[in-house]
Computed example of a mutant assay.
Amino acid sequence: MDNTSMMIADAFAWTALRPWFGRLPEEMSGDYSFVIVGDRTGGAVHGVFEQGMEAAKRLNTAFLLTIGDLVEGYWTDEGEAHEEWERVDACLTGVGIPLFQTVGNHDYGTETMRKVWRERKGADYYAFRFGKTLFLVANTEPESEPDAEELASVQRVNRYLLANPQLSYEEAYKAAIREEYDPHYTEDALINPHIGEEQLAFFADVLEKHEDVEWTFLLLHQPAWKKANPAFERLEQLLADRRYTVVSGHIHHLEVTERNGAQYIQMGKTGGLSSFEGKGDIHHLLNVNMRGGVPEMEVILLEGEGGTDLLSHYVKVELIP
């Protein structure tokens, strides 16, 4: 990686580890494309994430960005956490395309997961610049964890899924817990973003030093704009005089919103469990074509299994003027 393109907070000066793979092209001029990958987990659907990686290879993209939740996670045993990351990291490096990661709640949801993230990837928020485009990659996850009983249930299902990846989450849950899977959650209950003061100070400094960019992307796992959140609102204020796009994941349901004259995109999923039914309940990638410094976006639907076409243009996301 060309380190002149990368920006890491002083809080992570203790480590040379970074949450990305590969190297960006050293010279970049003109138009280019990149791909954003949705949530993989919460009960990964067998083979869909791998299909997404194969599809990304065919899109002739400069790099990939993941929006978080690459592992089932929520482990309290370091060995199990490292073992799952070994499997996923092998898949990510095997793509052969530079790839940048955003931390999600499954990746970061226990003290053990946070420790393992730092041991494997170092920083949990950062920024980078590619040509005239600036990318802010935030950490929206609070440093908390579910109670012991809930964690034990989650881990039993995770172990069953990892040993039997062909099963659906509902099947694994029934086998591991001996009950029917009956989720009781709402979007409001799922969203609990946290952005600390150190992050805000870091992003403020990055934005001040890169006022000349043509477009800014803010990547964050949780759609923080859906709850009153003073820290996120302050981050929006820092972006107010720029042309920018915000992209999140977490809810596993594609949704595009206009806010403050900008696009806020909540990704669907790339292999993750279905959470809410409707048109946005799809497995997809987001292909972003930077043309004259302006993003043109299209959702790439991941179709079916086996020999079906992996690249089906589902909908073009129209840019808000």
Rank of each mutant, 00 (worst) to 15 (best):
286 L>A: 04
116 V>L: 04
227 K>N: 09
198 E>S: 10
85 W>Q: 06
33 S>Q: 10
262 A>F: 06
240 A>I: 04
20 W>E: 00
40 R>C: 04
233 E>A: 11
60 N>Y: 10
203 F>H: 10
260 N>A: 13
55 A>P: 01
133 T>R: 05
130 F>E: 06
160 Y>G: 05
16 A>K: 08
289 N>G: 02
203 F>I: 13
288 V>C: 05
218 L>W: 06
209 K>W: 09
166 Q>N: 11
182 D>Y: 09
129 R>W: 06
53 M>Y: 05
130 F>K: 04
182 D>C: 12
67 I>A: 13
86 E>T: 14
257 T>Q: 14
263 Q>H: 11
59 L>C: 06
70 L>W: 04
41 T>I: 03
283 H>W: 06
51 Q>I: 05
254 L>A: 11
126 Y>G: 13
120 R>C: 08
170 E>K: 09
70 L>T: 06
226 K>Y: 10
179 E>Q: 12
64 L>E: 09
299 V>P: 00
119 E>F: 02
26 E>I: 03
7 M>D: 01
303 E>F: 05
220 L>S: 13
67 I>W: 07
209 K>R: 15
47 G>V: 04
125 Y>Q: 08
266 Q>N: 15
26 E>Y: 07
189 A>C: 06
11 A>K: 14
93 T>F: 05
9 A>N: 10
189 A>L: 12
79 G>T: 13
203 F>G: 09
238 L>D: 10
181 Y>F: 11
166 Q>W: 14
182 D>W: 07
179 E>L: 08
138 A>L: 14
280 G>H: 01
124 D>M: 11
227 K>Y: 13
29 S>A: 15
20 W>D: 00
219 L>Q: 12
19 P>T: 00
140 T>F: 09
181 Y>T: 01
202 F>M: 12
135 F>T: 03
